[in-house]
Design a protein around this nucleic acid. Structure first.
Lengths: 272, 272
DNA sequence: ATCAGTTGTCGCATATAATGAGATTTATAA
DNA sequence: TTATAAATCTCATTATATGCGACAACTGAT
């Protein structure tokens, strides 16, 4: 572990219950001297990632907000897909979620939540499971064979536990079948009593960018007719694909932001 | 400049027009070898701050969104002040902005924008000037003498340019007067034709957390009566202070997140 | 599915640059 | 203002980041 990694490890100290880190925390984490712990905190503070606070603590800094703003501004998924999602959700009075794929994580990127009778379990920035739920499966199934192979290599146990196959051939077959279906329907895999209907969103090069997911109660789902709902989701996703393609056309391909990809996964286990 | 700083410097490469960095950019920035540039990118990617993307580029990663979510969840300003601001803005049909103070930066934390006839110049995450505009001045004027002194030491020219005083005594006097006023009114200092009326927001220890700013056109301002508008802003700010205090009471002081502070300013020029 | 070309990683020797201890300065609270 | 705690600096030491070249992983074209 390099000093770079140790410094970045400080970010791991933050979670929902810990809003500020103290020198002690850093010393304990890194096993480094007081002076060096301060040096790390200083570097992060200089970059604005942390900010010194009262009470000998350091809190997350303004840079985080700035960078998040940049992402919101430039994420093709947010800028193109969100409007479509909100429109469709509003018209149908059904809840939707937009998920983004980041090489090793599936994250909720945006919500359209017209049906307030359902609690907003999800929220922007919350990490989603990788092998459970429509949002994840629809993305997984549209990855390249190469990507799938490396994921299998490192997450065989989780894949088996999720019932996606106990070996490479089974996994591959399951994924292939899901992909051909055009969308994935899951029942209570993330939250009990909720059905997710997910369709993939592709960039102009046909790489999967993320997923659009309809979320409804089992009861509503039963009344609405599966076929119809699937069509709604797929149609919306296709509209988004077209929008992405037309933007790419207009701006001349290269201007479209590059999309996340797995790193050198066979070596690092998909940590990147 | 340490290697830690050089690595974090990679974040500077991103801006509104640059959504992905390439190896070349990093090598040029750091003047380091190909291998080391990759090492930096790898560390940042492992931490999720960056994500490898197609086209040999690295984009901002999911960690940024996660950390931003944490900040939104725990920022006392957002959780306490936003609801009050939205309520007041809605009732008056006047636009408001909530600004946060981060030791060396003033940033827009949230907006309530009921009057859509004004363009939304501002947005969450956009850095604000430090010496211009009601949002900044109201915060500045409520810093401790110690903090003011160190700011004067490093930003004397900017302070003079902003007309806040050409020496320590003048600056101190100006700040003191503003503080006693209870709120600051500025005309077109950030955007022409817009008036800002800002009031400070304090934590239970009477330290300034940020500012609440009413934003209206010169014309509207003239019609509305300055005194009345000032009262509206101050009243809202006081309500927020009370809310913050009562939360602190209930949870038992220490649970209230610590607030940003300037680092060792006399040495590092307030970079932290 | 296989294969050439590109992008990313690794192993190792070397020297640079990070580290720890303690002195010193800066910040905060009384 | 002064006392106390927090943060930073100085400097000798050596651990560790660096660069080079070889190699592996990935991409996309056949």
């Amino acid at each position: 572990m390099t000093s770079l990694d140790k410094m970045l490890g400080i970010l791991d100290l933050f979670d929902d219950d810990k809003v500020g880190v103290q020198l002690e925390d850093v010393m304990q984490l890194t096993r480094l001297s007081r002076a060096t712990a301060y040096r790390y905190l200083q570097s992060l503070s200089k970059a604005g990632v942390l900010a010194p606070a009262t009470g000998n603590t350091y809190v997350l800094g303004p840079r985080v907000i700035e960078l998040d703003r940049l992402m919101r501004l430039t994420d093709p998924l947010l800028t193109n897909a969100s409007p479509v999602m909100h429109e469709v959700a509003g018209a149908l009075r059904i809840n939707f979620m937009l998920c983004s794929y980041y090489g090793n994580k599936v994250m909720c990127a945006d919500l359209a939540w017209p049906d307030e009778s359902l609690t907003r379990f999800y929220e922007r920035g919350r990490p989603m499971p990788m092998f459970r739920g429509a949002m994840a499966k629809v993305i997984l199934s549209n990855l390249t064979p190469y990507q799938l192979r490396s994921i299998m290599l490192w997450h065989a146990d989780e894949i088996r536990a999720a019932g996606l196959g106990s070996n490479w051939d089974e996994f591959r077959t399951t994924m292939s079948r899901m992909r051909k279906e055009g969308c994935v329907v899951t029942h209570g895999e993330v939250i009990p009593d909720l059905v997710g209907i997910g369709a993939p969103i592709f960039d102009p090069d046909k790489r999967v960018l993320g997923s659009l997911v309809m979320i409804l109660r089992e009861e509503t789902f039963a009344h609405s007719g599966e076929e119809l709902m699937r069509r709604h989701v797929i149609d919306a996703a296709v509209r988004i694909d077209a929008k992405l393609a037309s933007v790419a056309e207009k701006t001349g391909m290269p201007a479209l932001p590059a999309r996340p990809r797995r790193g050198n996964v066979l070596r690092n286990g998909g940590a990147a």
